[in-house]
């Protein structure tokens, strides 16, 4: 049995705007690096196989499931987590019942905010379709979709 302690790799990347250098093992997931070694526990694990989206972060600006990304692959790239978002942007989600238990929520908000920043996607897809990569067991999704629509409304108005 291998002990999972093969030679570490030293990588540098940009994390929430800060240059970051860490040693990672070849089998380490980005999710675990963030959560257990860099203290960014906002990113959650729901399934560990790319189904639930609770672990969503932005990699070079695109939402990805961090449970599927080997940590060494972020070398030289931009990683953004839920901790990088402005709390002031949460008002609509707060008011419309986007979160209940909160376990899916950071992932949901990452996807939601990505939609808000890329409203052109709504020319071909509905919010309901675009949110389909994030599982939520509490809300039945209406509270999530209404939250996104509220945030989109602000953007149009502002």
């Amino acid at each position: 049995m291998s002990d999972g302690r093969s030679d570490p790799l030293r990588i540098s990347f940009t994390l929430n705007g800060e240059p970051t250098t860490v040693e990672v093992s070849p089998s380490e997931r980005l999710l675990d690096l963030l959560r257990y070694r860099l203290g960014l526990t906002g990113t959650k694990e729901g399934c560990a196989e790319g189904e639930c989206g609770a672990c969503t972060v932005y990699l070079d600006g695109l939402p990805v499931d961090s449970c599927l990304v080997p940590a060494y692959q972020v070398r030289g790239r931009l990683v953004e987590t839920i901790e990088s978002l402005d709390p002031k942007g949460m008002a609509h989600y707060h008011a419309r019942g986007t979160t209940q238990c909160g376990a899916c929520t950071p992932g949901v908000v990452m996807t939601a905010e990505w939609i808000v920043r890329h409203p052109d996607r709504l020319e071909t897809h509905t919010v309901r379709e675009l949110m389909a990569g994030n599982l939520c067991r509490c809300t039945g999704y209406d509270g999530i979709i209404e939250g996104v629509e509220g945030a989109l409304g602000d953007r149009e108005a502002g």
């Binding site: 959560r35 990113t43 839920i82 901790e83 949460m90 989600y93 707060h94 979160t99 929520t105």
Partner: peptide
Amino acid sequence: MLRREGLSKLTGQERYVDDLPL
């Protein structure tokens, strides 16, 4: 009234058991 712990959950600050520093 808005959910009391809503913002903490929305911003990823809420600490679940696996998030506790240890």
